[in-house]
Design a protein around this nucleic acid. Structure first.
Lengths: 140, 140
DNA sequence: ACATGTTCGTTGCAGAAGCAATGACTTTCA
DNA sequence: TGAAAGTCATTGCTTCTGCAACGAACATGT
């Protein structure tokens, strides 16, 4: 018997991730016209406070260039502010503007609702599911 | 407290999927220089026999244009053959060449090994994990 | 102090994805 | 039958990703 794509985990994982991302992207696209990388940068900033491009790049699984360009767009849109680091002048410090924080408050609520929706779809196994994802994302 | 990206399912799903896809892509890239869409088209063909671009597009979560271009590359590489449909001349029938089947036999074995590796990493919850993925991929 | 190597953010560029439009063909229905 | 609508694969075109290269700023070792 030949290979079964439908049972293949990398494939199923890709399809599920793409579908879920799309669903959620529609929400914040409607709310603020954000792309996926922009959303991730904002979300990370909301949690971590001021942080460099490098930090985000490492924590958020986005290429440096993607973070850099997303940050520039977000800056001109007024959601975040760039400033130089005190002692290390190579670093650029990113932080939310008040508008950015207000936006993230709204998006955070939307995200929480969406998360609840997903958990409902997953049923009681949601916890174990999330743990399994961590294991897969763990080490490359 | 502000939003926690790390606990957010769509994010974790994306990261895990990207990481797993990358790991596996390295394998078939080394074996045959395939891209992800090319791999998916071949894998689907191996299972379904001769099939149209439209079929693959629907079953495999790839844009029509992506399937079309992947099929063209695979044809010039000699892994598959295009031919016209008997009665409906709009359709293009794709099927593996003998070389393509031989390739998929090798890749199928590699994929099975990789799947086993993943299941080992997931432990006993692998079954439930796969079921959860189906639920998420189910309906948009 | 100074040369070498590293790290940071940005930019250039080749390749890929996503979407609409096109041309060829088929179905439908008046 | 014949016109309109639908379906199929391909092709253009814009946008984005991913990688390498670059200039600027620090670190290290002599």
């Amino acid at each position: 018997m030949s290979f079964d794509l439908d049972g293949f985990l990398p494939y199923r994982l890709s399809v599920a991730a793409a579908r879920v991302s799309r669903r959620f992207a529609a929400l914040y696209e409607a709310e603020a016209g954000l792309t996926i990388p922009e959303w991730r940068v904002l979300a990370h900033l909301a949690r971590s406070g001021s942080v460099s491009v490098r930090d985000i790049h490492e924590r958020v699984a986005l290429d440096k260039s993607v973070v850099s360009r997303a940050a520039s767009r977000l800056e001109t849109a007024g959601w975040l502010r760039k400033s130089g680091h005190e002692t290390d002048r190579r670093l650029i410090v990113l932080e939310l503007t008040p508008e950015g924080e207000a936006l993230m408050a709204r998006l955070g609520a939307i995200a929480a609702r969406f998360q609840a929706e997903l958990c409902a779809e997953l049923g009681p196994g949601a916890e174990a599911f999330a743990a399994a994802l961590s294991r897969l994302a763990g080490e490359g």
